[in-house]
């Protein structure tokens, strides 16, 4: 009969271990890592690494296929101290997963290294009902909904583009929405800027936006920023958000948002429209082109149609 010590030694021969800092670096670089927390559900709820999927060790063989379809995907396993997950890693390796890594020192060392963790707060009965249709979607589920609720999105502009974006993001339960717009509601806005109503004419757009969105979903924390984005405030504002959605209506802002988002490493969801045409794309720093790859400099003012 093998001792535990011998089993661990055997596993260590075939399973590489990586430090928490190295795993965090790979995660931050956007490498396709699957993180599996093999502890029991109550341990997971008390605190876990963001994005980690909880599959208790006892269910590993049954559920790993649903969580990681491609056996060549790098899979990082962790438990509390790194021992249970070492044995679990060996099992995955035997199942045919070719790139299994054990988190050295486990969750304990991750926390001691000062790396970020998340804690699952129980959803209220209202939230369970409100987001029930999301739970049915396997790509969203309970885990995805919690992630949306923790997410912070900044909308540049609460006009034609910002209105529908804000409506749907609030409805979907994105936890924090920053809404930046220095304008007041004008009657000419109302034919397309659906966040605002006739009674809002003359009021700041962020004020009517906040009221409309809060009425739709009181879960959402709305941060109203009743000012125009400028070179002086942009870096300080975007640093607090996970994602920027640019629904601005002028080239000056688009170039400013492009440059600021690139420099701050923030992904920018870009959209613009003209008459009966529109376009959308995503500028993700160093993963794809930026606005200046398309158009290096703004057009001269005379060329801008009015």
């Amino acid at each position: 009969m093998k001792t535990l010590k011998e089993m661990l030694a055997e596993a260590r021969e075939v399973i590489p271990e990586e430090d928490p800092a190295e795993i965090e670096r790979r995660r931050a670089a956007g490498e396709p890592l699957a993180l599996i927390d093999v502890r029991d559900p109550d341990e997971y709820r008390d605190g876990h690494i963001e994005d980690a999927t909880n599959i208790s060790r006892g269910f590993l063989e049954f559920r790993i296929g649903g969580a990681v379809g491609d056996p060549s995907t790098p899979v990082v396993l962790y438990c509390q101290s790194g021992l249970r997950s070492m044995l679990a890693s060996k099992v995955l390796k035997d199942l045919g997963y070719s790139n299994v890594i054990n988190l050295k020192g486990g969750y304990q060392k991750w926390v001691q290294s000062g790396l970020p963790v998340v804690r699952d707060v129980p959803m209220t009965p209202d939230q369970v009902q409100r987001y029930s249709r999301h739970f049915l979607l396997s790509q969203v589920g309970d885990k995805g909904q919690r992630k949306l609720l923790r997410s912070k999105v900044l909308l540049i502009g609460a006009g034609g583009l910002g209105s529908p974006t804000a409506f749907y993001l609030a409805a979907a339960g994105v936890g924090t929405l920053g809404i930046m717009d220095g304008d007041v509601v004008d009657i000419t806005n109302l034919q397309r800027q659906i966040l605002h109503t006739t009674a809002d004419i003359g009021k700041p757009k962020v004020e009517s936006a906040t009221r409309t969105l809060k009425a739709l979903n009181p879960d959402v924390n709305i941060i109203a920023l009743p000012t125009r984005i400028t070179v002086d405030n942009v870096m300080d504002i975007i640093k607090d958000y996970d994602l920027i959605v640019d629904g601005s209506d002028n080239f000056e802002t688009r170039y400013l948002m492009n440059d600021a988002c690139y420099l701050a490493g923030k992904t920018n969801v870009h959209g613009s429209i003209f008459q009966f045409e529109g376009m959308a794309t995503v500028f993700a720093p160093n993963k794809g082109p930026c606005y200046r790859c398309l158009y290096p400099t703004p057009p001269p003012p005379g060329l801008v149609p009015s």
Binding site: V153, I273, M279
Partner: peptide, 22 residues
Amino acid sequence: MLPGVIGTIQATEAVKLLLGIG
């Protein structure tokens, strides 16, 4: 109506990016 189409695409992309799907 046009901004509704583009703004809704932007919202869809935002949610996909937040969730890391698609």
